[in-house]
Design a protein around this nucleic acid. Structure first.
Lengths: 121, 121
DNA sequence: CCAATGTGCAACTATTTTGTTGCGCATATT
DNA sequence: AATATGCGCAACAAAATAGTTGCACATTGG
């Protein structure tokens, strides 16, 4: 049996990801255009680049680059259909980013709690 | 009385912030160094620039710049004490970013739900 | 076949970001 | 008083980002 299983409180629960791994996801979300793209893709299904470019002031190529950034962060995925390239939202990474924020917020809450208790004494 | 109060369902609840407003916060979080700074500041109280620089491979001035980016996003705040400049975490903006992610995730869930119901028929 | 539509790739520019070094100033410490 | 510590400002330099234009290629529809 491996030393890591059944040790003292063997932590079956997967340990929280190192938090810094979320940086690329946050960076990808840190742009208004990309945030808009994410919002659009979240609402509907898969959309083509041309469709995603429609409402914007920037060129199709610029949108393509933004989509590639999002794809690099694992936030979207593309699938080719005929001459079109459809993009759809990929929820996993965003979910993980959400958990990262919750962990930070939780840490802060704990610190406040410690402070409160210290003052109480 | 103002025309906006007591209208038809006057929406006492603050309308959700436009989501794009969160882009600067995400951008600030989209860097490993800054994410680390946030984590450190979340755990303890207020720390000086020198203290925050201690464990890192970059210079004090680089840390200062990162802190200014975080301050620009409203994620940290500084207070001067003697010759030191202490930085502390400011939870509001991060809380808002968390809500943004939740709204996106919620929209996605709704879309999935609609899809599920459509398939059901 | 021919035209229209949807993309991809490459080159190029402008701006922002990330980091450095060098210096001076203010506050503590001895 | 002299030294050490903490910090700010300015001037760089290198790299990443965001956007453009131009052109070629594939697919779709008459």
């Amino acid at each position: 049996m491996s030393p890591r299983s059944r040790g003292k409180s063997a932590s079956i629960a997967p340990r929280p990801p190192p938090l810094q791994n979320s940086a690329p996801v946050f960076a990808a979300l840190g742009d208004e255009t990309r945030l808009r793209l994410i919002a659009v893709l979240c609402a509907g299904g898969a959309l083509s680049i041309a469709q995603l470019t429609a409402g914007t002031a920037i060129t199709r190529q610029a949108v393509t680059k933004h989509l590639q950034v999002l794809a690099g962060a694992g936030l979207v995925r593309d699938l080719k259909v005929g001459r079109e390239r459809l993009w759809e939202f990929e929820p996993q990474q965003l979910e993980q980013a959400r958990r990262s924020l919750e962990r930070i917020a939780g840490q802060w809450d704990q610190a406040l709690e410690r402070l409160r208790r210290a003052v109480e004494n």
